[in-house]
Simulated assay, not measured.
Amino acid sequence: MALPPFMNSTGLIGKIFEKIQQAKVPPRYTQDFQATVLGYGSGSAKPFIPFLKRLGFIQSDGTPTELYTRFRNADSSGAAMAEAMRNGYSDIFQKNEFAHALTDDKLKNLVVEVTGKEPSDGAVGAIVGSFKACKQLADFDSAVVPAVEKLEPLGISKSLVKHESRSSSSPELRLAYTINVNLPETTDVNVYNAIFSAIRANLLTNE
């Protein structure tokens, strides 16, 4: 299984993304563009290009995607990065939909679980560091709240209960839902707000 996206020089991630927002969108994002226009041509910066591809900012040939252009827009950059992280770190978010709200220790434990590597493995630290560097640029509050069909992985289950009227004069069928919510461990109140907003918007509205 491929490891989640990471760079060993995690401190470069935020710096290069800042330069991306300042520079024009290139026809193709290449090592020459990164070195000449953005100013990052060192060997430690070269892994940033495959890192961008894994996150969905550029295509396999280096062509910037729609996500790339949205990230350059100050009004949508945070949401674009949140979407990129959910794409690139999909294995992590499948384990915990609110991985971005975990403490450093819990995030590391989750990476260990996903990768199967030892906690002391350098790749684990690089993945955690890369994840956190991207998270600093992301706005998950502006991201789309999970739809009804995506609530199951959050620990929200539904069971359909049928109630039949016993009156022979006015037979009718009534349906009710029982909703069980298992909340994730987090101190971020925005996580709970997102969950209950999704419930109100998708499950508690009257059609």
Rank of each mutant, 00 (worst) to 15 (best):
residue 115 T to N: 02
residue 41 G to Q: 04
residue 161 V to A: 09
residue 156 I to E: 03
residue 190 N to K: 09
residue 194 A to V: 05
residue 159 S to E: 13
residue 43 G to W: 00
residue 138 A to K: 04
residue 16 I to Y: 00
residue 79 A to Q: 13
residue 173 L to N: 10
residue 198 A to N: 03
residue 99 A to S: 07
residue 102 L to I: 00
residue 115 T to Y: 05
residue 95 K to C: 12
residue 12 L to K: 06
residue 20 I to V: 15
residue 20 I to G: 00
residue 1 M to L: 12
residue 109 N to Q: 04
residue 82 A to D: 09
residue 71 F to E: 03
residue 160 L to R: 12
residue 194 A to R: 02
residue 106 K to T: 02
residue 67 L to A: 09
residue 56 G to Y: 07
residue 126 A to R: 06
residue 120 S to F: 07
residue 46 K to A: 04
residue 4 P to T: 00
residue 50 P to T: 13
residue 148 V to H: 05
residue 174 R to G: 13
residue 112 V to N: 09
residue 193 N to K: 15
residue 154 L to W: 07
residue 29 Y to G: 01
residue 103 T to I: 10
residue 167 S to H: 12
residue 163 H to G: 13
residue 187 T to L: 04
residue 183 L to I: 10
residue 160 L to S: 04
residue 61 D to P: 02
residue 102 L to P: 02
residue 2 A to T: 12
residue 81 M to C: 11
residue 187 T to Q: 15
residue 124 V to M: 04
residue 3 L to H: 06
residue 98 F to A: 11
residue 4 P to W: 03
residue 40 Y to H: 14
residue 44 S to E: 15
residue 130 S to E: 02
residue 134 C to T: 07
residue 204 L to P: 13
residue 93 F to N: 09
residue 36 T to E: 04
residue 150 K to A: 09
residue 88 G to A: 11
residue 65 T to W: 13
residue 111 V to A: 04
residue 40 Y to D: 10
residue 69 T to M: 05
residue 123 A to Y: 13
residue 194 A to Q: 04
residue 54 R to G: 07
residue 63 T to Y: 02
residue 102 L to F: 09
residue 162 K to I: 15
residue 189 V to K: 04
residue 206 N to W: 06
residue 89 Y to G: 03
residue 72 R to G: 05
residue 195 I to P: 03
residue 62 G to Y: 08
residue 152 E to Q: 11
residue 87 N to F: 05
residue 169 S to A: 07
residue 36 T to H: 09
residue 53 K to R: 01
residue 204 L to E: 09
residue 77 S to Y: 09
residue 17 F to M: 14
residue 62 G to A: 02
residue 98 F to Y: 08
residue 84 A to R: 01
residue 5 P to G: 06
residue 188 D to H: 01
residue 105 D to G: 13
residue 96 N to E: 03
residue 26 P to Q: 06
residue 204 L to D: 13
residue 183 L to H: 10
residue 117 K to A: 13
residue 71 F to T: 08
residue 21 Q to R: 15
residue 27 P to V: 14
residue 160 L to T: 10
residue 205 T to S: 10
residue 26 P to G: 00
residue 141 D to V: 14
residue 193 N to P: 06
residue 31 Q to N: 12
residue 124 V to W: 03
residue 17 F to D: 08
residue 142 S to A: 15
residue 38 L to R: 01
residue 92 I to H: 02
residue 52 L to M: 05
residue 130 S to V: 06
residue 66 E to T: 06
residue 76 S to I: 01
residue 85 M to Q: 11
residue 152 E to W: 03
residue 127 I to Y: 00
residue 120 S to Q: 15
residue 177 Y to W: 12
residue 22 Q to T: 15
residue 182 N to M: 04
residue 83 E to Q: 14
residue 167 S to C: 12
residue 76 S to L: 09
residue 172 E to F: 12
residue 89 Y to D: 05
residue 107 L to Y: 12
residue 135 K to Y: 07
